[in-house]
Design a protein around this nucleic acid. Structure first.
Lengths: 326, 326
DNA sequence: TTGTAGGCGTTATCAC
DNA sequence: GTGATAACGCCTACAA
């Protein structure tokens, strides 16, 4: 690999001059500039970013910490982060934490020791001390991290309400919420929205806790339908749970949406391609990733920080697991 | 951030000594070692990897270039790569190329300029000159890159044959292959396997080309079934196409598997959770990622390179879109 | 067993 | 306009 010194030698100038044309900083005569460019061309010189990072204390690396890229919610998020990062000349390092604090800590170390310029974090563990005294900007994505850390998420509470009201408007008389795991903030919020809407409407309801996992949820839904056969509407904690609900119902010969209506949450691709396609509360996943990344880059480049918390609106997409009106 | 010099000062030794205890290299008296460790502790010193990289010309960064993490085939692959990399102390940089040569080139530059130690590449463009004269190891994953580059992939040809023979054994009399895009090596291989098996069995067959995309494939399958209503078996080029086939059939009231059997390829999670669940040729996706990463790390650390091409076996998983025997 | 000093490739601050 | 040169933080001959 050619270095700046090689270029300087070949162009018959000093490294300082080469650096100047490289960074377009300071004055340099048109002719020398041309000579330098020629030398760069001939040597196929590429600046060494590591050396540059060492001096600048900035690597243009962004860390993306998320539980598991294999979870269908995250690829789109990761994609958005990568797209925006790329657009602004940053590169993203992908870290799967499995929600494991040790692993998060490890990645945090690796990232900071590599002079990452900023972090985007999706973690279940709120108030995680790991993140608060870092000296690089951090943005929490999808889930709150700490009150001092800016955050981009969707309106889970509003979505929960919306889903529930929708079910009720579609004529459901006994609705169940198969919620996501406790302790997980979005699951809690959605559940709160559900309770609020159901109580306000005076509709009887029931709540079961499950995981964001199809197999486990099939089990839960099965038990639920055994216990409460009257249920005619299910608000699933996310689309995976919704898929489980639909499958269980179909296998039992319960017709959807005639006898049982199901609505999910998230709007992952699966919800649209499943058959029947699943009515769901769609989060603007890509936009969330974009927003978080732009925010982070603003923070990194110090362009007057904007609001602390960005709560993006969700929207209800009607598909085949709920009744069409009119 | 504390530097090695701060530690040295605090421990009352030289930086060389600190470096020695850090890297466990060379002799150092137990007492001094203890003193240094204490200083490290007190200062919460963490070595600066950037400085280290500069000197060592190695960053312990691995680049993972793939078309689009949003494609359900890739998350598991990425996860495997990340897991193995992490296990060996490497960190992975995620790059979505969209199969765009310019983007690939850009990432290649970024990666090499950051002293990435190696690359794992999934690209459609074979014989891409970008990769051949790099001076870091490269491993091609899922798709061949160039004859000089080691490769990890699944047995697409064998899988194609297996799927076809299976359909025939299950009694199909007129089979169609809705294949993936031309030019894409795995799609070609699967198609070759199909043709070979169908011809050998003397079963009439038909081939349509589609994309690895549900919506487009629904269209293609629709046309196919219009033209050849006799078709009683479809070998889909991948699971997305299989999903499309199943949906189209079901919407037309064609019962699966009684009137039409469908088999996919890949074994993405969707194939298992779809209803009906889809019989498919499962690639060992996670293992492929692991294998490629281990191979790359061997190459990086120069541990006598193993065989050039690793072709992993696929297996047929019977589910609900084909008939059960006996 | 430990310390000194030079170098990894850049950038930026001075002089000239 | 341009060129030395001192950082950036670490590692490793080579000396001591």
């Amino acid at each position: 690999m050619a270095t700046i010194r090689d270029v300087a030698k070949r162009a018959g100038v000093s490294v300082a001059t080469v650096s100047r044309v490289l960074n377009e900083t300071g004055y340099v005569h048109a002719d020398t500039k041309a000579a330098v460019k020629k030398a760069i061309e001939e040597l196929n010189y590429k600046p060494n970013y590591v050396a540059r990072s060492l001096y600048q204390k900035s690597s243009r690396l962004i860390g993306l910490i998320l539980p598991d890229i294999t979870n269908p919610f995250f690829p789109e998020l990761a994609r958005a982060v990568e797209d925006v990062a790329h657009q602004y000349g940053y590169t993203v390092v992908l870290c799967n934490s499995d929600g494991d604090l040790e692993k998060e800590k490890h990645y945090l170390d690796v990232l900071t020791q590599n002079h990452a310029d900023g972090l985007i974090v999706t973690t279940n563990r709120q108030n995680n001390l790991n993140y608060i005294n870092l000296n690089i900007p951090v943005v929490a994505l999808d889930r709150p991290l700490h009150e001092s850390i800016p955050e981009v998420c969707a309106d889970h509470y509003g979505g929960g309400k919306m889903a529930t009201e929708y079910l009720i408007r579609r004529g459901c008389n006994f609705i169940a919420h198969v919620r996501g795991p406790g302790q997980l903030s979005p699951a809690d919020e959605r559940c709160r929205g559900f309770v609020n809407a159901a109580e306000k409407a005076g509709v009887p309801f029931y709540i079961v806790e499950s995981q964001f996992d199809i197999t486990i949820s099939e089990q839960k839904v099965s038990e639920l339908l055994d216990t409460y056969p009257r249920i005619d509407g299910i608000f699933a904690g996310n689309d995976l749970i919704a898929v489980a609900a639909v499958k269980v119902a179909l296998k039992r010969g319960i017709s959807i949406p005639e006898e049982l209506q199901v609505i999910g949450f998230d709007g992952i691709p699966l919800s649209a391609c499943f058959y029947p396609s699943i009515t769901t509360i769609v989060q603007p996943i890509y936009e969330m990733g974009q927003c978080a990344t732009k925010l982070l880059i603003q923070l990194i480049t110090n362009q007057g920080v904007t609001a602390k918390k960005h709560c993006l609106p969700v929207k209800l997409v009607e598909r085949e697991t709920t009744k069409r009106m009119g």
